[in-house]
Amino acid sequence: MLKGNHKMNPLGKALLQFWQSSIGRKIIVAVTGAMLVLFLLGHVAGNLLVFQGKEAMNDYAQFLHTMLHGQGVWIARIGLLVAFGLHIWATISLTIENRAARNARYAYDNTVQASKSSRIMIWSGMTVIAFVVFHILHFTVRVSPELANLPDTAYAAANPGEARHDVYAMVIKGFKNPLVTLFYIVGVSLLCSHLSHGIASIFQTLGIRSRKSAGFEQKLGWAISIALWIGFLSIPLSAMFGILKENPKPHHKAEISPPPASVQVVATSQG
């Protein structure tokens, strides 16, 4: 693996050694994990705009797609893809080594203080990968035509010649299927289990955990995990149980200008 190492410049050799070392890869896991946690906090905060109504949600979605002349969303996507890929690559390679290092198991297996979440990290992580793929196909690629062709009629009426996707309606329609919602519950729950160990681990791996700070860091990890769990799952559950309505009328009536009659027909036919 290190063949030809003598030809490398010192910086390249140092980077390769960092990459190959146990702690080096752990630091990569921690840094990419921190990036993904920050993304999740932004993602949940943005998504909760769905409770503000159709206009707020669709304005936010439009902002994401138009910021930095439309480049912003791609910068974010590429950054997330790189972080996600590195996180998966490093954890899988570390896990393979870990299994090899404990090649014989105890006949009497015992655990003193390791949390259940910490012991299923690779499995919760694998489920999250499957969930993320499904989630992107569901709401980003929109493989289902039912979710793909949803123009924001109110916006089109107010801004002639312009069109935008009705993300609000898509979210509510997307969670009408109980199986989809169930998969979201499983995926998000395992994600939060993953984070309940992962967030506190970031501090230890980056060397900023001490006896004084350890308790706070673990509680912060739990708090963020629980907040994300409630925040993310509130949306599919509210959509499924009809708390979020596709055409919220009385509450938002004053805020949106009445659409023309032709559009009105389209909107009601969707409900």
């Binding site: 080096g24 890869r25 080594e97 655990t111 203080q113 910490s118 160990h197 001490s210």
Partner: peptide, 30 residues
């Protein structure tokens, strides 16, 4: 193997050495 921050080690250490030394090793290595 590689540390996954579960701290079983600190629980069984007969000299009760704290996993703080692992954090310090991570920091010093970086």
């Amino acid at each position: 193997g590689n540390c996954t921050n579960q701290y079983e080690c600190e629980a069984v250490c007969p000299k009760s050495i704290s996993a703080d030394v692992i954090g310090k090793l991570n920091r010093d290595f970086a």
